[in-house]
């Protein structure tokens, strides 16, 4: 149960984390020193703002914490919001960090043999089964998803699936593993998300943070 004026901001580990710290600084949030220490086992950190704590969790879990009200604010990739359409989450601001793309890829060899537009079903290895099913269904293809949590690029070579749906940044990992991008599903960037009930019950506080982050993101664009 949330007590008093406590506010929790959830930030994903990994890719987005590095780009998130300058943003925090720009809005005046200074986490305790251990926050920047990747070796630290701590999961929750105090900040210079009274009552504001930051938690560091997995990207998909940011959305879960915010949806269930464990955290009131969060940074999360739009890929996660596409996978889980949580009703309890608002995503008012594009933070313009963590930019990458969600794509479909397959091996260069199979590319000539079959094109995705001619199959009625296919196996796809992915971390995003919902997005994948929806995307292929719109094209009249039944996607049989194999849920993997990482190293999707291995799946075609080891005969788990013909295709993969994954995030790419530069496309290097794809190339190294003999894969070629065939379609793009979406552009991805990180969003500021807020819990619905928190925004309704503490409109000034949460609204204030949305405003601060918006000003910083817009300001950076001008520069």
């Amino acid at each position: 149960m949330m007590k008093g004026n406590k506010l929790v901001l959830a930030i994903p580990k990994g890719r987005i984390f590095r780009e998130a710290t300058p943003l925090l600084k720009a809005v005046g949030i200074e986490p305790e020193a251990e926050f920047d220490d990747p070796e630290s086992r701590k999961l929750s950190f105090t900040t210079n703002k009274y009552g504001l704590n930051i938690i560091r969790v997995r990207s998909f879990d940011v959305a879960t914490f915010v949806a269930l009200g464990g955290a009131q604010l969060g940074f999360v990739g739009s890929d996660v919001l596409m996978e889980f359409d949580y009703q309890e989450i608002y995503a008012p601001l594009d933070l313009e960090i963590g930019k990458c793309r969600l794509i479909v890829a397959q091996t260069k060899e199979t590319l000539e043999i079959d094109s995705p537009s001619r199959s009625s079903s296919m196996t796809v290895a992915t971390k995003y089964p919902e997005v994948t099913k929806r995307y292929f269904a719109e094209r009249g293809v039944q996607a049989e998803c194999i849920k993997l949590n990482g190293a999707m690029e291995l799946a075609p070579a080891l005969n788990l699936s013909r295709r993969i749906v994954d995030l790419v940044d530069t496309g290097k990992t794809l190339a190294v593993n003999g894969l070629k991008e065939i379609e793009q599903i979406a552009d991805v960037s990180s969003r500021l998300i807020v819990n619905r009930a928190a925004l309704k019950t503490r409109p000034k506080l949460i609204g204030g943070w949305i405003k601060s982050f918006t000003e910083v993101v817009n300001g950076q664009k001008v520069k």
């Binding site: 149960m1 949330m2 009200g69 819990n195 009930a197 309704k200 019950t201 503490r202």
Partner: peptide, 11 residues
């Protein structure tokens, strides 16, 4: 309209 309690923040 929706009526929320403030603490805990629930509908």
């Amino acid at each position: 309209f929706t009526i929320f309690s403030q603490d805990p923040a629930v509908e």
